[in-house]
């Protein structure tokens, strides 16, 4: 892997552009991702294990919910990621659409399965938490319904990409869908404020002190870090696959494949 170092005057702006162009290069990104995805993966595992320990063993039970609240340590990070990844996906797709950057489309396409997985987990863990606490697995309130809509957006996006044979056309159509669905994210977040819901309001993202004991907050934050590292690792690995697939006729891919 040869990295060209152009001999040019390095003003900060030209350095920024060169950094941007370098990352826009599929070959560079492939190898960059190849180095960092495993590292993020290891970090994810470490943080998951720490989070599991502090959440399941160390943290005390809740005064109202007893031990069932411990689902929070996977439910809340999953829900957060389901929304965060969608934003990353939509923005990345939008950039690919407007600036015609192939890598941007590749990132968007790679985000979708990871985001869908987290949305699914958020819904399932939420249902399993709801039954012993609220008394029901599911209810059609604004929060739960909009999160389910998010899952359908992810699935619809992936189905659209699969239905369109041409990678570029599919990416662009998908970008339109992803952008159109962006409105769902603030709806999900503010649903518990705008309407009467069974689901409770925000604990961490509201203005003011988090209303959660520090011994419960720590494992929650650890899990936040874990899922973010996981997202990076999984998404970067998927981008690598997209690049190999799309750039198969280029020399650098031939070298990877045959070398």
């Amino acid at each position: 892997m040869a990295m060209r170092k152009p001999a040019q005057p390095t003003t900060s702006r030209s350095r920024a552009w060169r950094w941007f162009h370098r990352f826009g290069s599929p070959a560079y990104f492939y190898f960059f991702a190849g180095r960092w995805a495993p590292r993020f993966g290891h970090l994810a595992v470490a943080f998951f294990l720490a989070g599991l320990y502090f959440g399941l063993v160390v943290a005390p039970p809740d005064y109202q919910m007893g031990d069932s609240y411990r689902i929070i340590f996977i439910h809340v990070p999953s829900a957060w990621m389901s929304m965060f990844i969608y934003v990353v996906m939509a923005v990345s797709a939008g950039i690919g659409l407007v600036w015609r950057i192939k890598l941007s489309h590749a990132v968007a396409r790679s985000c979708a399965p990871v985001g869908a997985a987290f949305t699914f987990c958020a819904l399932v863990t939420g249902a399993l938490w709801g039954k012993p606490t609220w008394g029901t697995y599911w209810i059609w309130d604004a929060r739960l319904t909009s999160e389910l809509v998010l899952l359908f957006l992810y699935v619809g996006y992936m189905a659209l990409l699969a239905a369109l044979d041409d990678w570029k056309t599919g990416s662009r159509a998908g970008a339109v869908l992803a952008l159109v669905g962006l409105v769902n994210i603030p709806i999900i977040h503010y649903s518990v404020e705008w309407w009467n819901t069974l689901h409770q309001g925000a604990t961490i993202t509201k203005l003011g002190r988090p209303s959660i004991d520090i011994r419960m907050l720590v494992p929650l934050l650890i899990m936040f870090a874990a899922v973010n590292f996981y997202f990076l690792a999984a998404m970067l690995n998927r981008v690598r696959c997209e690049l190999l697939d799309q750039e198969r006729r280029t020399r650098w891919v031939q070298e990877v494949v045959n070398g």
Partner: peptide, 28 residues
Amino acid sequence: EMGGHGFFIWTSYAVTALVLLHGYLAPV
């Protein structure tokens, strides 16, 4: 047992673990 809520907690963790594991291994 988790205070009687064992099924809900462990199923949640198991489902999440399986889904995330699959999501990581598939692209690899």
